[in-house]
């Protein structure tokens, strides 16, 4: 038993070590895009007509007048010290601004993930089971539409249908203006529950439904396809035939033999889809006026708040690295072939 867990520990440590170069590459990439590409970040903040003096002063304030490698080192040091600078507009600490918006995106992404997993896995499994019927082809088209569709447009169509036409769900925002939620964890749904604010909870959850479906349907495309083809493949495996020959019930074969074996790669796919989910969330938040990281990014670009833009993108890189790590660990945990 102890050798097993030490094996797992070793695996986790080696994964963590592998994540560090990935993070460094991403941070460097961001640096290259924001500082090295043609285009001067100073003009991001002040207009070129602002006058030599102001331009130079801003350049100095941002540290952009130092040699490029020095900027690179201090940028990396800043990230690893947890110092992302101050917003150029509000002068607030970038971390604390992000801290207010990140939980909302996490909440949306989590709900979206559940919707995606539910839609993708159930449709994909059923389509594999009925692959010889029309449903197989229909599902192939549906799943392709899901991930080749403009997410923001799908969200808007849902708003038109459910908020304008049928008037069953609110169109935008995360909370009615007459309500408020005391901030504890930052996750609005959780905070509303903790403080026993049921009216706010219900209102908030109702407002989460459309954005979650929007994001979830978008992500479900990949999951659906992968589940579909994996279950199909698994149903043709020899161990499925052997199980049938033992008289195991079809339902058990579908779920315990075919689906369960197919889910292991699907979990890796969820990790790879995390990036798509973040992309999708920028658009979804914009459409539904949700004050998460995506809205923050778009707004700070338009407000030309350079330190904030950089900070947000860096946090995205951190998130990606962490999620990659978590998925690797979950993967190791559920597959008996790696668990050893």
């Amino acid at each position: 038993m102890s050798s097993k867990s030490s094996g797992l520990l070793f695996y986790i440590v080696s994964r963590i070590l592998l994540i560090i170069p990935m993070l460094l590459i991403l941070l460097t990439l961001i640096f290259i895009i924001l500082r090295v590409l043609p285009g001067d970040p100073v003009y991001f903040i002040v207009s070129p007509q602002a006058g030599e003096h102001i331009i130079e002063q801003t350049r100095h304030e941002l540290g952009l007048d130092r040699p490029i490698w020095e900027q690179y080192v201090s940028y990396l040091m800043g990230v690893f010290r947890g110092d992302l600078g101050k917003s150029y507009i509000t002068k607030d600490n970038v971390w604390s601004i992000i801290g207010r918006h990140l939980p909302i995106t996490i909440e949306l992404a989590t709900c979206g993930l559940f919707v995606a997993a539910f839609l993708g896995i159930s449709f994909g499994t059923f389509a594999a089971y009925k692959s010889k019927s029309w449903f197989g082809v229909f599902n192939t088209i549906l799943s392709t539409i899901a991930y080749t569709m403009p997410v923001f447009w799908f969200g808007m169509i849902l708003q038109i249908l459910f908020a304008i036409q049928f008037r069953v769900l609110p169109a935008t925002g995360i909370l009615d203006t007459s309500l408020s939620i005391t901030r504890i964890t930052g996750l609005p749904a959780l905070d509303a529950l903790i403080t026993g604010n049921m009216r706010a909870f219900v209102d908030h959850v109702a407002r989460l439904i459309l954005p979650s479906i929007t994001l979830g349907f978008f992500i479900s495309g990949n999951i659906n396809r992968m589940t579909h083809s994996n279950v199909l493949k698994a149903l043709n495996e020899d161990y499925v035939r052997a199980a049938r020959a033992r008289g195991i019930k079809e339902r058990v074969i579908l779920f315990k033999y075919a689906l369960k074996n197919s889910l292991i790669p699907v979990i890796t796919l969820l990790g790879m889809n995390f990036a798509r989910m973040l992309s999708g969330s920028v658009l979804t938040e914009t459409v539904f006026s949700i004050p998460g990281m995506g809205s923050l990014l778009v707004n700070s670009i338009f407000r030309r708040d350079y330190p904030l833009v950089q900070g947000i993108i860096v946090v995205y890189a951190l998130l990606i690295s962490i999620v990659t790590l978590i998925i690797d660990i979950i993967y190791a945990y559920i597959d008996p072939r790696i668990r050893l």
């Binding site: 161990y239 049938r244 033992r246």
Partner: peptide, 25 residues
């Protein structure tokens, strides 16, 4: 037929390496 399989008539296949579900002990 399903009730007969395994109970009345059983089958052993050629390749034991792939005849067991890898995630079940």
């Amino acid at each position: 037929v399903r009730k007969l399989r395994g109970k009345e008539i059983a089958m052993i296949f050629q390749n034991p390496d792939v005849s067991l579900n890898p995630i079940m002990n």
